[in-house]
């Protein structure tokens, strides 16, 4: 139960079949559909949490979905503060979801 990609057979708008992309998230390979955002790839497998907050150690995921709230920031290919809902996944992307800016190496207690 939770978030998922609409199964092809159930989708009333029947999108054409598309290629797959495979990204590595916190060391694990995750596959998605070509053209999906990084957030979309993760949510398709019901993964909602994209980081923990610096102060309260609270989980955060996609909130606004349109690039405004920055709740979904992750590190992509070594570059941090990338909004997972806005960045399209490319084959071979390395994504780290462990924390937002100040948390990356436990700087904020």
């Amino acid at each position: 139960m939770g978030a998922r990609a609409v199964p092809a057979g159930e989708d009333p708008i029947r999108p054409d079949a598309a290629g797959t992309v495979t990204i590595r998230v916190d060391g694990l390979e995750v596959s998605g559909i070509d053209g999906q955002s990084i957030a979309g790839v993760l949510m398709a497998s019901d993964r909602l949490e994209l980081r923990r907050t610096a102060r309260g150690d609270r989980p955060r995921g996609v909130f606004c979905g349109i690039g405004v709230c920055f709740d979904c920031i992750v590190e992509v290919n070594g570059v941090h503060d990338v909004r997972a809902c806005q960045r399209r996944a490319h084959d071979g992307d390395t994504v780290i979801t462990t924390g937002d800016g100040a948390r990356r190496s436990g700087a904020v207690s």
């Binding site: 989980p59 995921g61 996609v62 606004c64 349109i66 709230c69």
Partner: peptide, 12 residues
């Protein structure tokens, strides 16, 4: 996580 804006649900 799991609380979304309406816009997020639509965009996704």
């Amino acid at each position: 996580p799991g609380v979304f804006t309406g816009g997020a649900a639509q965009a996704l």
